[in-house]
């Protein structure tokens, strides 16, 4: 690991001031960043520890929640209001990492974690456009079973690894940001970028810009929500496919729906094409399956991951069927 300086931010303004220095990086729980530094994938000159910033989980007047960016993953998943009103979020967080990692990892750190594409981590032996722009991508013709089927580009087919973000995407979460030029908000679905020609630019964050909180609007009244993760072993593994969904059914008709996929794209994938097919349609398995198909029609499989198309269709269908049963 390269030598670096360490500074603890007293508040958000202090963090932004420290974080705007050249080659500074924000440090949350360190569960991804420390590993990246140890393997020389990244080498910041200064770590700005932001774990002392707000970790409060506050009730909003509109019935939503405001979650401080430094809240630990476990603290969010165990919070009464999250468990009762945002089951998709509690379940998604509990599907991610291990208990030890969830006790360390912060909300903002989870959002900004890097891909687990093995070629990204293999500094000595592999080419990676995300790590070294213009170098080439060894995943596209390599072992790409875990890689993206949606939203990839000829430059990068890495997936975003977060479970929590898939639920946040389906919950219409909004990210609060603070930078040198002031504060702003951004829907979570607009925070991460698709790789295109520049996979090294992963988010819309400006240099030194800090995530200070995540805001959850209330889910549609009467809607059920859930999260299902499909992986190679029963626990502690990244998703092959995951699905977060919010569904309301009235007199057999879908009157509210939000759907997001994980494990299939370089960013948390909000499935708006499927949502359009579902809204106003009868809540039955044929509808669910057909809607999943319309979303996956855009999929471009690689040599080893075509199975994800069928897997995603089946998982979407199963999750929506479960929620339709609950919502009745």
């Amino acid at each position: 690991m390269n030598p670096f300086g360490y500074a603890r931010a007293a508040d958000a303004a202090d963090a932004v001031r420290l974080g705007s220095a050249p080659r500074a990086a924000y440090l949350g729980g360190g569960t991804n960043l420390v590993d990246l530094m140890r393997r020389n994938v990244v080498a910041p000159a200064t770590l700005v520890d932001v774990t002392g910033l707000s970790s409060a989980i506050e009730e909003r007047p509109d019935g939503g929640l405001l979650i401080g960016a430094a809240a630990r993953n476990t603290a969010v998943a165990e919070h009464r209001a999250v468990r009762a009103r945002y089951p998709l979020l509690a379940r998604a967080i509990l599907a991610g990492g291990s208990a030890q990692i969830r006790n360390m990892a912060t909300v903002a750190g989870n959002i900004l974690q890097r891909t687990r594409c093995p070629y990204f981590y293999d500094v000595a032996g592999s080419r990676c456009n995300r790590r070294h722009p213009g170098q080439g991508c060894d995943a596209i013709d390599g072992h790409n079973r875990d890689h993206a089927i949606l939203g990839g580009s000829p430059a990068c087919v890495a997936t975003h690894p977060s479970d929590m973000c898939v639920a946040l995407a389906a919950a219409d979460a909004v990210v609060h940001l603070r930078g040198a030029r002031g504060a702003r908000v951004l829907p979570l679905t607009e925070l991460h970028r698709l790789p295109g020609d520049h996979p090294e630019i992963e988010t819309e964050l400006e240099a030194g810009e800090l995530i200070t909180a995540v805001e959850l609007p209330p889910l549609p009244p009467g809607a059920a929500s859930g999260y299902r993760k499909v992986r190679d072993r029963a626990g502690y593994a990244f998703a092959l496919v995951s699905v977060a969904a919010v569904l309301r059914v009235e007199r057999g008709v879908i009157t509210a729906v939000r759907l997001a996929l994980g494990g299939v794209a370089p960013k948390p994938w909000r499935a708006r094409t499927a949502e359009q097919a579902l809204l106003g349609a009868p809540a039955d398995p044929a509808t669910f399956r057909a809607a999943a198909r319309t979303e996956l029609a855009a999929a471009v499989p690689l040599r080893h991951n075509a199975f994800k198309i069928e897997l995603a269709e089946r998982t979407v269908t199963a999750v929506l069927a479960d929620l339709a049963g609950e919502a009745r």
């Binding site: 440090l27 360190g30 569960t31 590993d35």
Partner: peptide, 10 residues
């Protein structure tokens, strides 16, 4: 917690 991913200074 995982002590391997924890920086002691934190």
């Amino acid at each position: 917690i995982l002590s391997c991913l924890a920086l002691a200074v934190q």
